[in-house]
Design a protein around this nucleic acid. Structure first.
Length: 291
DNA sequence: AAGATTGTTGCTTA
DNA sequence: TTAAGCAACAATCT
């Protein structure tokens, strides 16, 4: 499940590869990924350059020369994999790539490829999605602005302020986990980094958000920033299907403290890590450390 | 073989 | 008016 660090890793990878590249053609292999009836609009993207790539939470936006934005949400199983001209030639097969050590890339397109952008220099961007939850959307500048504004602050930007965070939590009667997962309240956190940051802060995910003490909120605030930065540094976490912009797995998986580690022993106290359900999601906790 | 899984939306209820 | 909670979505795995 790509969350902020995974999507940011992809964004950075793609910036170096497709900014200033000109679109030659866009192919919709699965109509469900684009808005109904709008498939014709994608024909007009020919010859437009990608100006920049922006991320809001887990959502990517490619700004085009004509001021429109291609939005891509990977949801649970989406992947964006870039193949350069030389990748394609080196593989010996039209669409296979070199096999690097941690590469889990494969011959593309495959049956899960939903959308393809061909660039004029021969490189290709593949959008793969096993579960078909992800989407591609073409929007105006105004619509993009509106979508951006519907999100809470970006935790790695100056707009994420401790005082605002305290205020926000003090009003919420639901669990701290549900609050952290809510994209309208804070951008980019998902199941992995919510569990990790709450463990790092010794806070039980089931606690009512408003019950957190000032000290706990301060700690949580710092740990959210810390875990996200560290995960980006390690190029994200691969749990099921996530790969970076070149099709490689993330390096943070081995650094996870509780997520996906139910049955293992807690690194802090040695008791068994449990898996429970909070806010409708599988939740990993050390009940001895997290109160 | 039914149930769990996940992010987000949209509906219902409080 | 707004928050909270949950079904729905899709495909795969257990």
């Amino acid at each position: 499940m790509p969350e902020l660090p995974e999507v940011e890793t992809i964004r950075r990878d793609l910036v170096s590869k497709i900014v200033n590249k000109k679109i030659k053609e866009v192919k919709i292999l699965d109509k469900k990924v684009v808005e109904e009836g709008k498939d014709k609009e994608y024909k007009n993207l020919k010859n437009l350059k990608i100006i920049t790539i922006i991320r809001q939470g887990k959502l990517l936006a490619f700004l085009l020369e004509n001021k429109k934005y291609i939005l891509i949400h990977l949801k649970m199983t989406g992947q964006l994999v870039f193949k350069s001209d030389s990748d394609i030639i080196a593989g010996g097969h039209p669409f296979s790539s070199k096999n690097n050590s941690n590469s889990i890339s494969k011959v593309l397109p495959d049956k899960h490829t939903r959308f393809i952008i061909y660039f004029s220099n021969g490189s290709i961007l593949f959008f793969n999605d096993i579960r078909r939850f992800g989407y591609v959307k073409l929007v105006s500048k105004e619509k993009w602005q509106e979508i951006k504004e519907s999100y809470g602050p970006e935790p790695l930007k100056a707009e994420f302020k401790l005082e605002d965070f305290k205020q926000m939590l003090s009003k919420r009667k639901t669990s701290i986990k549900a609050v952290l997962l809510n994209q309208k309240l804070i951008s980019g956190l998902g199941n992995i980094y919510v569990d990790e940051s709450l463990f790092m802060s010794n806070i039980d995910p089931r606690r009512e958000a408003k019950s957190l003490k000032d000290k706990e909120v301060e700690n949580l605030f710092k740990n959210i920033v810390k875990v996200l930065k560290l995960a980006i540094k390690n190029r994200g976490t691969t749990f099921s299907d996530y790969v970076d912009g070149s099709g490689k797995a993330g390096g943070y998986s081995s650094k996870l403290l509780v997520f996906g580690r139910d049955g293992d022993l807690c690194g802090k106290c040695g008791s068994v890590i449990k898996k429970v359900k909070v806010a409708g999601r599988g939740t990993h906790i050390c009940e001895k450390c997290q109160k």
